[in-house]
Nucleic acid binder design. Structure first.
Lengths: 204, 204, 204, 204
DNA sequence: AATGAATGAGCATTCATTCAT
DNA sequence: TATGAATGAATGCTCATTCAT
């Protein structure tokens, strides 16, 4: 119990501190202080500072993946699945602002390990989207000329950019449901007004 | 001339070094070496390390903004404008991989100054998109229920995520034109197959 | 019995670890691991790390002293006594390479306690030599102009330097008996060739 | 001039600090303080702490070697050469007590680099002795059954042990000239009283 | 303006020692 | 007695910044 306790406490503290200061500016003693643990204790559970960051991903992003996956698996309609992904991704990050900040910041560090790690672990999450898109195409719901590999990134990138906005501006101008719906709509239906004569005329 | 020369040389060197190592891991002496300048000389042109980073944005992103703006202003059709934005954004970052890496990495640093700066400077670039969207809506080309503030982020985020892919995987699976077109298409038309009976049936 | 057992086990382990890594580089946990004992247990038997080192000397060097003394006491001829000392010193250290390394390394630490300790304990061993020399002088076997205090150090130093050689070069170029005899001979007879006309001529 | 100055100052300071505290207990900041230099400055001249120690050997022992060699080369009689070696070795270490302490202490560290270094550099010094012995043997001055490799160690070890005594007991009981002569005599003539009937009788 | 040697604050990590169990 | 998790003081080294030249 104790071991799990300390490990967890340190992870939680690291999430907070990394979010607040960023990986490079965070000091081990900051994490230790927040975790109410001695500096040296951290090294009983982690090999080094970077190892803490990787563990944060393992644990916290793993948790994110599981929650989103679980919800999506209950659904059969690919359109709904994407809507749920958008809504859940945004709301979970909203609830866990620290994690959102870490994903924003640290996932982009130009670090070999992060790069490799990201390929391995984080892509599992984003690949949920491309699986859904392929299902939609198989059901003749989605256009076949859309490449799932590009579309998944477009969808995830759109959501990610919104998350970034929230980090920059703590008081969001848009609520989660609306944002998730707008992005899903843009993605699913596009922004062209098909009922409009002008659009047709201009061959948009 | 010489002063301008040095300032420019240092900026160029900083772009390379920041891109290769990231801001925190980059050393002033690295930049000085690449710029073929003494360490101390850098402090004749910049206040501190972070000031170099801000200047990189000022100069290099300013250049990016100008190039994209110029092309878009020649166009009147909002649909084409977005296509051009996508194509140009991706191809310019492709040509200037170092800048692309810096945007990816450093723009997400959880740093007060960067945050403030980003609001001020970088948003000017992204706002090109929302202006275009508003133009499209005014022309009855784009649906009025799309919020330009969300849509601009969705569009930029989609492009940005593709740029990120290229940084992580130097050998891209997708070419620029195709990627730009796919993203524009998704954004403009959505991914639902409107001609399909299934899509209609499932009220997707 | 058990307590003695543990104490002994720790000492034995410490000899190995100190020999392998040196006092400063040896970790308490290394010793604990080799002794198959918990780290904390060591502190039930020793006050601190340095105390272990002193105990190693007490026990292991004490053992060395006893063995050499015992053999020498059986002998009456001072010349033979020195030969035996040389042979036994070298062969015992050869058998116990770890102890040899510790004597080499740790006995020279510039540490007040070691210094004091050395005077107290180790000199008892070296004094065997001066006692023998005085016996030889009393029996008119050895020259009276030789100062026992210097001679004992010369003899011990010579042996010690050979031991050092073995530690540095695990595969010795010289065997023990030969080495012991050579050193005894040099010490007892010198290296000048008294039968040679040249030596006489040069008043060497 | 400045560079040489600082390098020299740091070496000198390191000799003092290493002598006083020993390598492991010496702190870089101690050396910096004694050298009247900032901590970081040390790293402009040395790669790391151990590199300082090696440099101390290079410079200071190199100096010792040169001085002893120079004197010996003026001499042709191998007996005198050994006497001079003994006298000079002891008196130079006497003058430079810090260096003497470092040789005593650090030369015996069980450290791979030191071991290798010692073979390379320090043996050059000790080999002076074996060269002299071979010369003596070639001139029929010294007995041919003495192995120079063992004899050199015996001679050096004897001197070294005396140096050690001085380090342990700052107030020496024996003066340098007397000590050097005694060791040379023991080495050259042995301690057996050849004029004595007893010695002959006991086949010593 | 330009240099680059010098500075010294700052921090990750180690490990002897303690103490609750 | 015995354990080993927890502690936290201690330190080698880095590197942004300064400043005498």
């Amino acid at each position: 119990m104790k071991t799990i306790d300390k490990h967890e406490k340190i992870i939680k503290a690291a999430v907070k501190v990394f979010a607040k200061k960023g990986f490079f500016s965070a000091r081990i003693s900051d994490i230790a202080k927040v975790a109410k643990v001695a500096d040296g204790t951290i090294y009983l559970y982690f090999n080094n500072k970077f190892d803490i960051l990787l563990s944060v991903f393992d644990i916290e992003i793993g948790r994110l993946i599981n929650q989103v996956k679980e919800l999506i698996e209950k659904e059969t309609n690919p359109c709904r699945m994407l809507e749920i992904f958008a809504l859940k991704h945004l709301s979970l990050l909203k609830e866990n602002r620290s994690l959102a900040e870490i994903i924003q910041m640290e996932l982009r560090q130009n670090n070999k390990l992060i790069k490799e790690y990201r390929v391995t672990k984080f892509s599992e999450y984003v690949d949920i989207i491309s699986h859904v898109i392929r299902q939609g195409q198989a059901l003749n719901l989605f256009r076949k000329d859309i490449q799932p590999g590009i579309a998944k990134r477009a969808f995830f990138g759109a959501l990610d950019e919104m998350a970034r906005l929230w980090i920059l501006a703590p008081k969001p101008a848009y609520n989660i449901e609306e944002t998730a719906m707008q992005i899903s709509k843009i993605f699913l239906c596009g922004i062209i007004d098909k009922g409009s004569a002008q659009a047709d005329e201009k061959r948009c």
